[in-house]
Amino acid sequence: MDITTQKVGWSSSEMAQNVARDIYDGAYVNLGIGMPEMVAGFIPEGREVIYHTENGLLGMGAVAAPGTEDPELVNAGKKYVTAIPGAAYFHHADSFAMIRGGHIDICVLGAYQVSAEGDLANWSTGNAEDIPAVGGAMDLVAGVPSVFVITKHCTKSGEAKIVKECSYPLTGKKVVSRIYTDLAIIDVLNEKLFVRELAPGVTFEALQQQTGAELHLTQQTKTHGEKK
């Protein structure tokens, strides 16, 4: 009897690590609020990455140590942060010129839903009683060339977050480049979803079952030893 329990999927920190692996040396990166913020902790040795926060800082450093918090030095999530040597402050119009003008290389965002064509919904549930809030998400997806999404593959109640068409209000159309979930890494290419890597213990068939849109396997799809 096989009593070993095989690990299935990636943890949140492994997901963040997967994103970090794809952020290249010298990149200017904007990290969204929440899970995307974790990515900064996993950039491989030897790479220099400059973090942009849309409230006016290029060269954001680590979260401020207890006792050193400065209420006038915050990130987009209004957390107290630090600035690295070589950082720069600027006003909001300049900050979004960096974003909309295509100067930021990569942004990492969370998602409610992503469609097969790369549409993103991440700002509103569409419920009338929820207070709508958009922040900088629409500017980011419109202006940043590589939009990475980091999200659980399914909602807490088990519904697919990768869908044929988003039912939530859109943040942008055909904007997502790559999706990092707990089960797989998926590229959006020519309005189709290509599985780049399957998480440990995840088969393509199982992944497809938990996905609301058609997935494509490629010769290059990386797997982690699951039985075919």
Partner: peptide
């Protein structure tokens, strides 16, 4: 409430 994307608001 008039909700405006942050960069659009700044611009």
């Amino acid at each position: 409430l008039e909700l405006v994307p942050q960069g659009t608001l700044a611009e």
